[in-house]
């Protein structure tokens, strides 16, 4: 190999090494930019506004959490831990309506903040989230909407409307109405033993109500429904494949209904004045704790049912399934 060839080869090697270094530098810079974008700094913002003691408080947030509690002051106080430099807390109060909201979701650094890319990058909110702690007048009506944020409320005596797409909802209920809904989040409610009208529905999440009383309507497709009511008035529980478990006492004239396609239904209800019952299953079994045997609908085909009356039969219990087991007990 002549000297010229060696020189050309040396120059080639030098250029390749420079190109490799440049590529590595570029890659490192890109990684750094992504890392910086991912590690969004967190900051805390606080606001407080005067509010109607019996007004409505509306809270909106996408990701993170919403923690609401009632207090005895005519003010709404908000503390927000914001992760994501574009997120802002807005609080306003007008004509008995106080609105708390987090804005700036989806305004990414890459200038492509459309919802599609938003979902693509991080399943909703990416690295942006806000943890909200809100104190509201105790008698306020609450209207909370979230996407993936978990919702928690306590000590609020007014009506509550809580909804989240995938976040779990946990709430303390008073005697006012409550309407709680999720798509995939679980719902966990705790009553104070006073009569209330509660509606809880989830597509795939579990629904639990403890220490409830009064009316309850709960539905889920695949989640389980568990409720404890004393006394229960009008209860309607329905699933497609989830199990249903109800415990408690029946009030006078109570009406209980449990329906499922393939879920197991268990009612364990005491009733001072007794109740009439009507249980039927197409291919599931029926079991009870008072010694009655189910009757086959046909000598040759499937289907069993059980009807009867305990005590004076003041209340009514109806249960039906396609293939799920049924269990009824009065103690």
């Amino acid at each position: 190999m002549d000297t010229g060839s060696r020189q050309r080869q040396g120059i080639d090697l030098t250029m390749r090494a420079q190109a490799r270094r440049a590529s590595l530098t570029l890659a490192a810079a890109l990684l750094g930019a992504f890392a910086a974008a991912g590690a969004a700094e967190e900051r805390t913002v606080q606001r407080q506004v005067a509010a109607d003691p019996r007004g409505e408080v509306i809270i909106n947030n996408v990701g993170g959490s919403i923690d609401v509690s009632g207090w005895d002051q005519p003010q709404v106080s908000v503390s927000a831990d914001l992760q994501g430099e574009d997120l802002e807390l807005e609080v306003s109060s007008e004509d008995g309506h106080t609105r708390v909201r987090i804005t700036g979701y989806g305004n990414g650094r890459f200038g492509l903040g459309g919802l599609g890319l938003f979902n693509f990058l991080g399943g909703g909110s990416g690295n942006q989230e806000a943890r909200l702690t809100v104190r509201v007048p105790r008698m306020s009506q609450l209207d909370v909407t979230a996407v993936s944020a978990a919702v928690h409320s306590a000590g609020v005596l007014g009506a509550q409307r809580l909804q989240s797409v995938s976040g779990d909802i946990r709430a303390e209920l008073a005697s006012a109405d409550a309407d709680v809904r999720t798509v995939s989040g679980d719902i966990n409610l705790r009553g104070n033993g006073q009569g209330a009208h509660v509606t809880a529905s989830s597509v795939s999440g579990d629904v639990t109500l403890g220490n409830g009383a009064g009316d309850l309507q709960a539905t889920s497709i695949s989640g389980t429904l568990q409720a404890a009511l004393a006394p229960a008035a009008t209860v309607r529980l329905r699933t497609t494949s989830g199990d249903i478990d109800l415990r408690g006492t029946l009030g006078r004239g109570a009406e209980l209904r449990g329906d499922s396609i393939s879920g197991r239904i268990s009612f364990q209800t005491r009733a001072p004045d007794g109740f009439a019952y009507d249980l039927s299953s197409f291919s599931g079994s029926i079991d009870d704790c008072f010694g009655q045997s189910p009757v086959h609908d046909s000598q040759y085909g499937p289907g069993v049912h059980m009807t009867g009356t305990l005590g004076s039969g003041d209340g009514n219990v109806h249960i039906k399934t396609l293939s799920g087991e049924i269990s009824l007990c009065d103690r």
Partner: peptide, 29 residues
């Protein structure tokens, strides 16, 4: 069961509205 399916679809449609409300802060005032 048919009504359950309708309810599910309605819930998904509502969830789209929730997402818009939660993201843009459009409340029910």
């Amino acid at each position: 069961t048919y009504q359950d399916e309708q309810h599910l679809i309605a819930t998904v449609q509502e969830a789209g509205v929730w997402t818009q409300e939660a993201g843009s802060g459009k409340g029910s005032i």
